[in-house]
């Protein structure tokens, strides 16, 4: 633990409710330890605000270990801040320097309305999952492990996609407000595996089309990939595009799965 202390200036988006107009407010934050996480720094600010009888800054968080996908905000214009492959809760204040000015703002997208301050409603991501992010499996006794052989590279690729924590940073970072990386990860982690084949084509069509009801389109800026706290590759977007074209143009729903 270092006992070096930092002082930063924090400019935060404050918005009292979904329909209230928002504004930036600036706070002087002394006594920041470089070992604090970004959210702990916000905790410090909020404790002070509460002592002063003011409303604390509302932000989403839960696990604080980068696995739940609750946290997330724009930090100096970057989703989850300047550290690659890191969620806001895992971002440490040592990434900033003494005297830095840090500006935080909620995700912005038509599908992510602000609820309060830095909290946005990410229900639209759930709508995408509901439309196809599942497999049909028989109930009953648990199957034996390794009953279905899956090549290691395939299992690895599926796991890479399944690392998505659904935080919405890809949407926030995308200049087009597209949810392609999220949807591609959720489509492909099932499409790659034998267990996901039964619904493969319906899943692809339904999840892509639900995504498109809420979000923008992908123009390959690669901002999502850079913002993703799990560093999920845009390769999965290509795989989803391929599956979508196959599903639509090959009319698999009519003729069945007759060629690869």
């Amino acid at each position: 633990m270092s006992d070096k202390q930092m002082r930063i200036t924090l400019t935060a988006w404050r918005q009292d409710g979904p329909d209230a107009p928002g504004r930036f407010e600036t706070y002087d934050v002394p006594g920041v330890s470089p070992d604090m996480s970004f959210l702990e720094m916000l905790d410090v600010v909020n404790e002070r605000l509460q002592r002063e009888g003011k409303e604390p800054i509302a932000f989403d968080h839960d696990c604080r270990e980068g696995i739940c996908g609750s946290c997330g905000m724009m930090i100096n214009g970057q989703a989850h801040g300047p550290e690659r492959g890191t969620a806001t809760c895992q971002l440490h204040m040592r990434k900033f320097r003494d005297g830095d000015h840090v500006t935080i703002e909620p995700w912005r997208a038509a599908a992510f309305p602000v609820i309060r301050d830095l909290i946005v409603d990410r229900t639209a991501l759930d709508r995408i999952i509901e439309s196809g992010g599942y497999i049909s499996a028989p109930t009953g006794g648990a199957p034996d492990a390794n009953l279905i052989p899956i090549p290691k590279p395939v299992a690895d690729a599926a796991m890479d996609a399944a690392a998505c924590i659904g935080c919405g940073a890809c949407v926030a970072a995308c200049p087009n407000g597209a949810a392609q990386l999220f949807t591609a990860a959720k489509v492909q982690h099932l499409n790659l595996l034998p267990q996901g084949q039964a619904e493969r084509w319906d899943r692809t069509i339904n999840m892509v089309e639900t995504m498109e009801e809420y979000f923008g389109s992908c123009t390959l800026h690669r901002e999502c990939e850079a913002a993703c706290p799990k560093s999920i590759s845009i390769d999965f977007i290509a795989l989803m595009n391929r599956d979508y074209a196959k599903a639509q143009l090959a009319q698999r729903r009519l003729v069945g799965q007759t060629f690869p």
Binding site: T11, W13, F24, M74, N76, G77, E105, E223, A227
Partner: peptide, 9 residues
Amino acid sequence: YQSKRDYVA
């Protein structure tokens, strides 16, 4: 975004 975006990729 109301604050400046910082594009990385």
